[in-house]
Amino acid sequence: MRRDLILRIVTKLVLPFILLFALYVHFHGDFGPGGGFQAGVIAAGMLILHSIVFGVRSTKHIAPQGLVEAMIPLGVLIYASVGIPALISGRNFLDYGVFDPHHTPHGHHLGILMVESGVLITVFSTMLAIFYAFSERGRS
């Protein structure tokens, strides 16, 4: 794809907006359609588009393979650790009321955002790691 000038320029223009849309979908997921699952897939789609046009090697400069693979368990860990404070203070596991004892609904809102971040990280890194694994196979 070295000589595809239009494709490269348009991709460069579109990429930041795709990332912005992914972040919008993630943080606006409480008020409109969206959430961690969709945002993770859209963000991974952005990097997959980047690697299709510019080559996997240049994508691995932006998102190193080791980092992406480390992020897969990190997301699950974030999700599970959100439930720990509730356990310590004697509530049920994953009871988000603990984050704001004076006004529980706000605690729930905060907890939902944190849990969705864990989902976002796991989904994003799993999709990207799977894509890296397939592209790795093709080169060798």
Binding site: G35, F37, V41, V123, T126, M127, I130, A133, F134, R137
Partner: peptide, 20 residues
């Protein structure tokens, strides 16, 4: 179904890896 779709693509990827 929302979670089922994402789990579905993850298992599809596993199947495709086996095919490879």
């Amino acid at each position: 179904i929302l979670t089922a779709i994402v789990v579905g693509v993850a298992t599809l990827a596993l199947g495709l890896a086996l095919v490879v």
